[in-house]
């Protein structure tokens, strides 16, 4: 069967339809000024606009490309409180078919990964697309944890993915270069720019926004308790001392400062 179906002249249409899960985190916009509550124990959300994590936008568009090529269903999921629903609605407006919110206010990545695992175990997905990193807590944790819990293959920093009849070929960034992996689906990926090109990113159009209102957004109760880590406090990094300006005609002075003062060379 494999031999016949992978034969090139049969084309992409012979690929099975795909049930794809895109894990979405809900994060402060990249331009947001970050402030913490007066007691320093949490982010102060006042004045912060929340968006789909930029890494997840690439994953969602990739899912749409796969669906368009071979048919299937795209589910977006977030583990979070009701305030994340606008982000899920936006993902529906971009083209996801249905959304799931697991109702929890997770304090760490392992709790998120376990909640996601519970959902995935009860629903079978062919492909699970995460982003490489959430730009809020910069964890880079959930995708690898999820893959380990599910015992599924995992490609992180994924900048290219092609699917052929249940087999995935993934290209990942590694230090100083790239690696190419092969795995049987289902698998988990941690995606980033390159998975699709930035110019191909989908944004919601009017029809999408209208239809998103009637697409299902299912709220599921949380099943996991507290995880083993907890934030103690947050602070802002120490500000820099004022910049020292050096005359453009006097680069020797810059070299001297870098050597003697900054000890950077």
């Amino acid at each position: 069967m494999d031999l016949l179906c992978t034969h090139s002249n049969l084309g992409a249409n012979h690929n099975p339809t795909m049930n794809i899960l895109v894990c979405i985190s809900h994060v402060p916009d990249t331009t947001a000024k970050i402030n913490f509550t007066a007691d320093g124990t949490a982010l102060d959300p006042a004045g912060v606009q929340f968006v789909i994590n930029p890494y997840d936008e690439f994953g969602l568009t990739k899912a749409l490309h796969v669906k368009e090529a071979q048919g299937g269903t795209i589910t977006v999921i977030n583990v979070g409180p009701a305030t994340t629903e606008p982000t899920l609605r936006k993902a529906l407006a971009i083209g996801a078919d249905k959304a799931v919110r697991i109702d929890a206010t997770p304090m760490d990545a392992i709790t998120v990964a376990k909640e996601l695992k519970n959902h995935i175990s009860a629903n079978s997905y062919d492909l699970i697309i995460c982003g490489q990193e959430s730009i809020d807590y910069n964890g880079q944790q959930v995708p690898a944890m999820l893959a380990a819990l599910l015992e599924q293959p995992f490609a992180n920093a994924c900048v290219g993915l092609s699917l052929d009849n249940g087999t995935a070929t993934a290209t990942s960034e590694i230090d100083g270069g790239h690696a190419t992996y092969k795995a049987s689906l289902p698998m988990v990926i941690g995606g980033k720019k390159g998975l699709v090109e930035e110019k191909d990113l989908r944004i919601p159009n009017m029809r999408g926004i209208m239809s998103a209102r009637t697409k299902p957004l299912e709220v599921v109760p949380a099943t996991e308790g507290e995880g083993p880590t907890k934030p103690v406090s947050f602070e802002k990094p120490a500000g820099k001392a004022a910049v020292k300006m050096v005359d453009a005609e006097n680069v020797d002075e810059l070299v001297r400062l870098l050597h003697e003062e900054a000890k950077a060379i």
Partner: peptide, 20 residues
């Protein structure tokens, strides 16, 4: 164990406790 970690893309520093 308590350590400091970068958060919010270097706009914040978190002190985190690993209770385990």
């Amino acid at each position: 164990l308590q350590v400091k970690r970068g958060a919010f893309s270097s706009k914040g520093i978190e002190t985190i406790e690993l209770n385990n």
